[in-house]
């Protein structure tokens, strides 16, 4: 079962690198942010897999914080793209 999860994790990392290709190519800024967001989600899953493989639930906390930060980064970047500033009212 462990070998299976190692394989799954490596597969996930390969996918993440392919997504980084989109971040490199991406014609617009939004494409790059989206690609980084996807890489973040994949990293989250890899962290969870590692927590199972090593049997340490500490990695789950790391994954949780990673997921929250990933969400926050995307929202902030989107907002900055939309309004050009970070403080004050939206619209």
């Amino acid at each position: 079962m462990r070998a299976f999860f190692w394989g799954l994790g490596i597969f996930m990392l390969a996918n993440a690198f392919l997504c980084l290709l989109r971040a490199y190519l991406g014609p617009t800024v939004a494409d790059r942010i989206l690609a980084v967001n996807i890489v973040g989600t994949k990293t989250l899953v890899v962290l969870v897999l590692l927590s199972y493989i090593f049997g340490r639930s500490l990695y789950l906390d790391v994954a949780l914080v990673y997921g929250l930060l990933n969400f926050l980064v995307t929202i902030v970047a989107a907002r900055f793209m939309e309004t050009g500033r970070l403080r004050g009212e939206l619209t």
Partner: peptide, 28 residues
């Protein structure tokens, strides 16, 4: 307890992923 954390993570992805996508799409 780890199971609860895993479910929490699943809920987090379920809520945050479409919201992030929508925020980006709206900005663009």
């Amino acid at each position: 307890p780890a199971t609860l954390k895993l479910l929490l993570l699943a809920v987090l992805v379920l809520i945050s992923s479409p919201t992030a996508g929508h925020a980006l799409a709206r900005a663009v």
